[in-house]
Design a protein around this nucleic acid. Structure first.
Lengths: 307, 307
DNA sequence: TATTATTAGTTGACAAAAGCAACTAATTTT
DNA sequence: AAAATTAGTTGCTTTTGTCAACTAATAATA
């Protein structure tokens, strides 16, 4: 027997009971769960046809038709003949429909609040994060691009978290030893020592308030800049995050009038190398080294900005 | 509007749809979800009365009576007159009842497997862990002590994560500025430079594969040891994690025959100070300083181990 | 362009799911 | 010993959901 599966089943049973969804007259209202779900669907999509609702909620059209008839009689919805299709109607909530729904929403929220009232704020945060994780892992279309946020202000914990990501990701992907993390720690210490808000910047991409990608620009002598710590959590690749980070970084270099940006990387970082080249970086140096438990080429890439 | 609550509601809607619980003829069997839940309850508790089932599943006794009657007719269950109470019956699954349930279980597991097939092993682990977290927080409103694990082998990412925790927790709790994290980074760099597996050790407490607490022993000249980086995520306090970490650290010092352990801390760390004192540490030095955006006392505590 | 197939929605007939109340027989309380 | 309570059954009812036939509009096709 697969234990992952049985653990999930156990959670499913727990959550079914927790949702308390299997009793009719949901939330002590005179409406059934199905009816409330229909109202909710109407309110969510602003305008919607009966057909669409049957698709979303997987309901029989005859059944739905009768429920909508009742809603109409009770003045919860209005049906407006569709302009495009004379067979169909656009359904909208009336004011009293909206009111009903907001009462039900409030009841539902009260119920939830009752269940989490004993949790402190950080426990609540853990709860919501865990729910998000469950949802992300169970959803086909993994992560939505819109849910990624970007920022470049350094707050407590950021640098540590980026060091962690370096250690963790390179450890997993390239099998780098602990020494690599030590090296990263050193580079960040030096960075913070010489940090100038005017000439240096670090960009972070976040999901669920957790950093999933980053890049930085570090000023160097002779009007040069170094691009450092470009990193993307493997689970978040292919969403355009890397491109956005690199573009922002290079834009910053142009804005600050650096004449040249360079970066040091290893031949093992194939995904990153691809992106560097796409942004116009060109290989200028390559040297075989043995480090962090691996043999590879240490490479320098340059991108000229101004003459 | 409370965002925690609305996020939970959003998850509830998602999970309701995910469970696909709202369609009758669950799992394409000729049985409804309620009927399957009844069978499941019978199989779980080996012997059970109808009364008990109505309590657990919140069903009408008349309704249940008829379902059980059908089960009996279909030879899925047997009713044995209870010895203690002549009104009641003990209900058990027959062999064919068990068989039916195992077929349904297999179907359910297949369905789940289909939904997680694209996940790799570590993602599956994260999924199950997150489900456990959700369950723990929603039931006991607490984290189960048994779910905390301890280790003291350094793996890639650990140090970075601990730095992150320092920055994040002290930033939130004591309002320390970014400079504090820089200082922590420096201390870890020095630690890794001088690290000796024989004389140094770092302990980590984990929950769901994430570090939630730590402490370290760093060897010093003159057979002294320094206790450093004692930290506990606020959400995980009061579970005995801190005590366990400190005890392990001090045991290690005794084992390695250090004559004295000391630690440097600030007067702001009231929770930690309490624990240090409980372990026998005594204040040996105190000095007012202004650092990391705050004014406080920098204190040294000592614990003599051998003469 | 006329014919055919499909689709959005309604309605009638019906079956399944669930609830309520009255009942029996045993058990507990007073 | 009487009264109240409880486990379970049964009759009756409502609610919930299904299926198929139908209308009117739209899309596909030849």
């Amino acid at each position: 027997m697969n234990t992952t599966t049985s653990k999930i089943r156990s959670f499913n049973r727990f959550y079914t009971a927790h949702l308390d969804i299997l009793s009719q007259h949901y939330l002590d209202s005179e409406y059934s769960l199905t009816e409330i779900r229909i109202l909710y669907e109407i309110s969510e999509s602003k305008i919607i046809t009966a057909q669409k609702i049957t698709e979303i909620l997987n309901l029989d059209k005859g059944y739905l038709s009768r429920i909508l008839k009742r809603f109409l009689k009770e003045n919860l919805i209005v049906k407006v003949a569709s302009a495009e299709d004379k067979r169909a109607f656009n359904i909208k909530l009336t004011d009293s429909g909206n009111e009903l729904l907001s009462i039900l929403n409030a009841k539902s929220e009260n119920k939830i609040e009752g269940k989490i009232e004993k949790l402190n704020n950080s426990e609540k945060e853990i709860l919501v994060d865990s729910m998000n994780t469950v949802r992300n892992l169970l959803t086909e279309n993994k992560i939505a691009r819109e849910d990624i946020t970007y920022r470049h202000n350094i707050t407590p914990g950021d640098i540590g978290y980026i060091i962690y990501l370096h250690g963790f990701i390179y450890g997993n992907e390239s099998n780098f030893s602990n020494d690599f993390e030590k090296y990263v720690i050193k580079t960040f210490y030096d960075f913070l020592e010489k940090y100038s808000p005017e000439k240096d910047r670090i960009w972070m991409a976040e999901y669920n308030n957790k950093i999933v990608g980053c890049v930085a620009i570090v000023h160097q002598p002779n009007e040069e800049a170094q691009l450092r710590w470009f990193l993307l959590d493997p689970a978040f690749r292919g969403l355009g995050i890397g491109k956005k980070l690199l573009t922002d970084a290079i834009d910053f270099c142009r804005e600050k009038k650096f004449k040249n940006v360079f970066l040091l990387t290893t031949s093992l970082q194939d995904k990153a190398l691809q992106m560097y080249k796409m942004m116009g970086f060109e290989l200028t140096k390559s040297e075989e080294v043995q480090e962090w438990g691996k043999t590879f080429y240490e490479e320098r890439y340059d991108l000229k900005l101004f003459k």
